[in-house]
């Protein structure tokens, strides 16, 4: 489904990603871990199409299409979903109107009829249960005054509404208490199928107790330096990132 080859990206001339290779197949969950500043969020942002990052080398093929050629909105309509690390508060834009606009633009692109108000509401109610989000929250301005947990739940709720093929969760666990974490993970797990895939970007192993990955990759200095299964995440939890850094740095000096 997703094939990343030798991806290099920089911001304002500073290289952040220095040759990422990653293959993701339908039905899989990949965890991207790594110390702070290793490029995890950059990878998520580049995949979603954030303009500040300049791709200097490499390619990203998503469902056979050159993803890097597409605008952020077309990527979203093609089925890429980024759950933001810091969801943006947008005063004056009602959550419901925003979602309806988004859902219908995505549907139109996919050749589906737009949802009328009634059908939209029905879909919303169904998906709201998934992340136990309160309707009152959705009558407010988008993310405005939401708590950290509410914002993250709202991200997963939007994910459920937009029905993506590739979901990228950028530090969705950071700042969540255990209840919120359970709710968010539970939502993600219920949305999993053999047709879609998930990339979980996280600093901590804790989230992976709830969203169990098929593969774990360690990102350091803009490259994937180690890949394994969920046991690798356990090892990282136990030993921290230093041993990986040492391993990589010593290789580099040889």
């Amino acid at each position: 489904m997703l094939s990343i080859k030798n991806l290099h990206a920089s911001i304002e001339g500073t290289p952040i990603l220095r040759g990422i290779n990653l293959e993701v197949k339908a039905g899989e969950v990949h965890a991207i871990m790594g110390p702070n500043g290793s490029g995890k969020s950059t990878l998520a942002s580049v995949l979603a199409g954030r303009e500040e990052y300049e791709v200097t080398e490499g390619e990203v093929i998503f469902k056979g299409i050159d993803l890097l050629e597409l605008s952020p909105e077309v990527r979203a309509r093609e089925g890429v979903f980024l759950a933001f690390q810091y969801p943006v508060e947008i005063p004056g834009v009602s959550s419901t109107n925003f979602l309806r606009t988004a859902v219908n633009q995505v549907r139109e692109y996919r050749g589906l009829e737009p949802l009328d108000a009634v059908k939209f509401l029905t879909l919303m109610k169904e998906k709201m249960k998934l992340v136990e989000i309160d309707q009152k929250l959705l009558s407010r301005s988008l993310n405005e005054g939401f708590s950290g947990g509410e914002k993250k739940r709202n991200e997963i709720f939007q994910m459920a509404m937009l029905d993506p093929t590739l979901s990228i969760l950028d530090e969705t666990d950071s700042g969540l208490d255990i209840d919120a974490l359970r709710i968010v993970s539970n939502g993600v797990n219920q949305l999993k199928s053999d047709k879609n895939a998930t990339i979980v970007v996280t600093h901590y192993q804790r989230l992976l107790d709830y969203i169990v990955p098929d593969f774990v990759h360690v990102l350091y200095n803009g490259r994937i330096v180690k890949s394994g299964t969920k046991e690798l995440a356990m090892e990282l939890e136990e030993k921290g990132y230093d041993w990986i850094k040492e391993e990589v740095d010593s290789k580099a000096t040889v």
């Binding site: 979203a76 309509r77 947008i90 004056g92 925003f98 988004a102 633009q105 937009l162």
Partner: peptide, 27 residues
């Protein structure tokens, strides 16, 4: 950042701009 957020949900850039500006004026 707000513009990117809306685009990342599938909303066309021009429309996303319109939405944000209207929200600004709406106050």
């Amino acid at each position: 950042e707000a513009l990117f957020y809306l685009q990342a949900r599938g909303i066309a850039k021009d429309q996303a701009k319109g939405l944000l500006l209207y929200a600004f004026a709406g106050e």
